[in-house]
Simulated scan of single mutants.
Amino acid sequence: MMKSVKWLRGIAAAAILFLAGPVFADDDNGFSEHQTKRAVDTFEAASAACATLDPVFRVDCLRQAYSQTVRVVANASVYWEAEVALTRVNRGLYAFVREHLDRNVARVRVNGGRIKAVTPASVPVAQQLYRDGVDRAVAAMRGASSLEVRYFEPISQALLATKSMMQ
């Protein structure tokens, strides 16, 4: 009885490895063009809506664009370096908005969220903070392995395209 159980376990293990072989193939690294495109499309759609706003609202709007994009890349663990880079920008913008919030201006609804305004005097500081954050995020994504860079480059390009929006 014990011998036949061991034999059946061996057969089952062999069958699992045979059938799951394509799942564990060397060329399946977890990255996908589809996942990268979803991240880029999410960021570009959200940031395009931000471009139509007054500069005092753009900081929080872009923060929300980063937040939405982080949620997309968080679904694939191999994108963790991009997720960390995007999260750093998001958190920097969040802290800035909290510190420089203009309480005299009503929030506006954009991309399904309520966008807060910063004080007009803080906009030049926000612009520099944003440019520096984008540069750091792009450097982190471009400093990854060559395989990661291949999938992170479209995301980096989308980030770089928004730098002029904060000028």
Rank of each mutant, 00 (worst) to 15 (best):
M2S: 14
V5I: 13
V5H: 05
R9M: 13
R9H: 08
G10S: 15
G10C: 04
A13C: 11
A13P: 00
F18M: 10
F18S: 11
G21S: 12
G21H: 08
G21K: 04
G21P: 07
F24D: 06
F24H: 13
A25F: 12
D27A: 04
D27S: 11
N29I: 13
Q35F: 02
T36K: 01
R38E: 15
D41T: 05
F43I: 11
A45F: 02
C50L: 03
C50S: 02
A51V: 09
L53I: 05
F57L: 13
L62M: 12
Q64A: 12
T69S: 11
V70I: 07
V73L: 09
V73R: 00
N75D: 15
V78P: 07
E83F: 04
N90I: 07
A95P: 00
F96M: 02
D102T: 01
R107C: 08
R109D: 13
N111T: 05
N111A: 07
G112D: 03
G113M: 10
R114K: 14
K116H: 14
V118R: 00
A121D: 15
V125A: 12
V134S: 00
D135Y: 05
A139T: 10
A139Y: 08
G143W: 10
S145G: 06
S146C: 08
S146W: 07
L147N: 06
E148S: 09
V149E: 07
F152I: 03
F152T: 02
E153F: 10
S156L: 02
S156R: 10
A158H: 06
L160P: 05
L160T: 15
M165F: 05
M166V: 10
